[in-house]
Write a protein that binds this DNA or RNA. Sequence first.
DNA 1: GGTGCTATTTATAATGT
DNA 2: TACATTATAAATAGCAC
Lengths: 183, 183
Amino acid sequence: MSRKKVKLAYIQNHTTRKLTFKKRKKGFMKKMSEITTLCDVEACAIVYGQNDTQPEVWPSPSGVQGTYAKFRTMPSMEQTKKQLNMETFLRQRIDKAKDQLRKQKKENREKEMSILMSQCLTGRSLHDLSMGDLTDLGWVVDHKVEDINRKVKKVHDELAWNGSNQVQVVPTQPPPPAISFNI
Amino acid sequence: MSRKKVKLAYIQNHTTRKLTFKKRKKGFMKKMSEITTLCDVEACAIVYGQNDTQPEVWPSPSGVQGTYAKFRTMPSMEQTKKQLNMETFLRQRIDKAKDQLRKQKKENREKEMSILMSQCLTGRSLHDLSMGDLTDLGWVVDHKVEDINRKVKKVHDELAWNGSNQVQVVPTQPPPPAISFNI
DNA sequence: GGTGCTATTTATAATGT
DNA sequence: TACATTATAAATAGCAC
């Protein structure tokens, strides 16, 4: 079939344009999340759909705000060229420190999760939970769901990889509401 | 050749990570320009390379500023949609949790810095410092420099803002070598 | 440390339902 | 009009210089 090379110009047809936008926006956000995960860089983006009531932002409204603030306060680049020896040394140390911080961050999350899970299992009722608890609980749920999805995806990929590509895997389900926790 | 499917996780190897970042940043910016051209939407992005002193922005610093301003002044639909279903609620909690983690990470750094500074001031000689100390010291230096640069920039902006835009500010200096610390 | 080169994976334009 | 499928274009991971 004729899937010609895309012409890099405004798409006149409304339907096509809207569809393309939707697809590409999805791909774009995925790329964004990938580059930040793979390279541990900070990034943000705002995309206004043509007639969408709200802009699409990444990673979150507050995340955009934070990164933008950093951009604004960033000193000008005059200071770029430094004595390379010392700079190289420092950069290496900094990289190492960053790795350590990443690990600590992860540990913090795990710890946070454990604490919350056990709290939730001590039998307190939903009304006893504070706003802060719910905040964290939201994260726990999200983390769990992501974790499960990753595993499902992995199994799926492995199956497909082994040539059993006719196997159908049920799409991952949306997260259960928080109240489904056995609190 | 073996080009295995990319594992969606932080790339430990420095060289690989840098290369991947460079490639993907290029691809990312291209996608950005394509989606705006094809669909005529407004968008902007900021990406901080880990070692780059200057963030990569799209379409331009002023373009980012403009789009961000629009985003800020837009009556946040998030507020409008206060009749939140559980998912929206969770998303908000998650965003909040993410911000908290960001802050915690920053706090960790500050704490680390304080500890090291005081250690450095207790009179130990340079030879008593371990490699680990130097690792952290590198970070301390970098942080301090960033901090100072921020302040310089702020003063600079404020001066310019008051109409004294002919004031010349001496570019920020490179950081002193770590050994200049009074250890 | 960078650059160029494919083999693959990934994104997506066109199409089908 | 929106969503699923599939053929093709585009991006890029792993290597070789």
